[in-house]
């Protein structure tokens, strides 16, 4: 196989993963946050799970990080659809933002 000259395959993989994570997790999360209040999703329980347990922290990273990349990848391509032909600067900005969100997510749960 000849070496690809662009990183689109990587970005697309992340986009695919993001599409998957949104499909798998987002509905449940949204419904939970719409129907349950702080009495159910109490600080103690949430903190214990998402900030202390390995499984909770990992699941946050798995659910959110690919989703950022997936969404931003589509936003970037969506600009092309709207005939906004963004240059490399915008591209770096877009995926850079995804990178920032990803790092923030990892930092906050660790």
């Amino acid at each position: 196989m000849s070496k690809p000259k662009h990183i689109e395959p990587l970005l697309w993989s992340l986009f695919g993963a993001g599409g998957m994570t949104i499909a798998f997790f987002m509905t449940g999360i949204i419904l939970s946050l719409v129907f349950f209040d702080a009495s159910t999703l109490s600080y103690e329980r949430m903190h214990a799970f998402f900030m202390e347990s390995w499984i909770g922290r990992l699941s946050i990273i798995v659910a959110l990080v690919p989703s950022y990349w997936g969404c931003i990848h589509r936003v970037y391509h969506g600009m092309h659809d709207l005939q906004i032909h963004a240059g490399n600067g915008i591209k770096v900005l877009c995926y850079g933002f995804a990178m920032v969100l990803s790092i923030a997510t990892v930092v906050v749960v660790i």
Binding site: L64, Y68, G70, C71, V75, L101
Partner: peptide, 12 residues
């Protein structure tokens, strides 16, 4: 994707 992104930022 726009809504999901905003919602993810809300979650973050």
């Amino acid at each position: 994707c726009v809504f999901n992104l905003l919602y993810c930022i809300n979650l973050l």
